[in-house]
């Protein structure tokens, strides 16, 4: 059988050996997926919840990019949005509150061949997980992080979150929220090594998909804030924005999102924005009405942590075993049952 050479890349981006015909067919056969290949279970989110739109968008992305389910992992923290990995027929990690990002970073380091997606709520990311968030931006590891921002803690029945606007009455702020909301975009844009920042709304599915797709193709930490509805606790909170297309500002550019005629007809307020301009990105990020939608900032030159610290050794089973043995050898078990740390 003759060899044919296809540019197939492994997880590290290096070309593999040429495949023979049978391997090639097998690969093509396996790379074809349907939407159903990524669906699992019936989402238990409330009807009308914006999480549904995000779930559909990532499932479509996986299908269109032909991501093998066994090579894809969704990591989440705690909250409504963090149930997303349950509904993806891929690997998933429903982790601790605020700890989605460190778990995802661990996965990236241990398994650089996996495609990593992170789904966090506004409380999850911007409150208890804020420290991890900031350092995840700085580490710039290759993953797609989605902040499901509905301005409220929904799972715990309407408590104020860091992104709740001032004056919003919640169960923890019955007289209205006292503080100005935290702006996740300006925070992200202020951290060293930031490489990709976008904002989108869940009620424009076409742009939602395009944005997540652009983030997926970005090499580095791609942060997307998805402004979404909570029909249960804040049923009218976003209604004015949804019903009035002029309250959405579409950012478009040849290096950003492309607005087609259909969208342009409905969303007439548009602005050309070059995503390489960080100062302008910060100005746009400061605005909240109309909601800027699109890619605010993008810099493909920022190095990724896993590339800088890449361990060139092949991670074989024996390597892992030897490493573990070496660690275990540091301990000595005495007859009295107590462990003593070796001083060697």
């Amino acid at each position: 059988m003759n060899n044919i050479s296809l540019n197939v890349l492994n997880g590290n981006g290096a070309a593999t050996e040429p495949l023979n015909v049978n391997d090639c067919l097998l690969q093509l056969y396996e790379e074809h997926y349907e939407l159903e290949d990524y669906q699992k279970g019936v989402p238990r989110w409330c009807t009308g919840c914006g999480d549904n739109a995000i779930l559909t968008a990532v499932q479509r992305l996986c299908r269109d990019e032909a991501l093998p389910p066994e090579k894809t992992v969704f990591v989440s923290g705690i909250g409504c949005s963090s149930r997303l990995p349950h509904y993806m027929n891929t690997y998933g990690f429903h982790s601790l509150h605020g700890r989605a990002l460190p778990v995802a970073e661990g996965i990236r380091l241990a398994r650089p061949d996996l495609k990593v997606f992170v789904n966090m709520g506004d409380g999850d990311c911007c409150s208890i997980g804020a420290a991890h968030w900031i350092h995840a931006i700085r580490y710039n590891m290759n993953m797609t992080a989605m902040l499901h921002d509905n301005n409220i803690y929904g799972l715990t029945k309407k408590q104020a979150s860091p992104t709740s606007p001032i004056g919003l009455k919640t169960n923890t702020t019955p007289r209205g929220s006292y503080l100005d909301a935290l702006n996740p975009l300006t925070v992200t844009l202020g951290v060293s090594n930031v490489s990709f920042v976008a904002q989108v709304v869940d009620w424009i599915p076409k742009l939602l998909y395009q944005t997540i797709q652009a983030a997926y193709h970005h090499k580095g930490f791609a942060f997307i804030r998805v402004i979404q509805r909570c029909p249960e606790w804040l049923p009218t909170h976003m209604e004015a924005y949804m019903q009035d297309p002029t309250r959405v500002l579409l950012l478009h550019h040849e290096n950003g999102l492309h607005v087609d005629d259909e969208l342009a007809k409905r969303y007439t307020k548009m602005q050309e924005h070059d995503p390489s301009d960080i100062n302008r990105a910060r100005e746009i990020a400061s605005g909240s009405d109309p909601i800027p939608v699109g890619i605010l900032y993008r810099n493909d030159e920022v190095p990724c942590y896993e590339d800088v610290r890449f361990d060139s050794r092949l991670r074989t089973t024996s390597l892992v075993k030897n490493g573990l043995e070496a660690e275990f050898d540091k301990f000595t078990i005495w007859p009295d049952g107590h462990a003593h740390v070796s001083r060697n």
Binding site: T47, G48, G50, N52, A53, D202, I204, P205, K206, E262
Partner: peptide, 12 residues
């Protein structure tokens, strides 16, 4: 249809 956000309101 292109504007549907898959929120399950109608299918329910």
């Amino acid at each position: 249809t292109p504007r549907c956000t898959t929120c399950n309101e109608c299918t329910q």
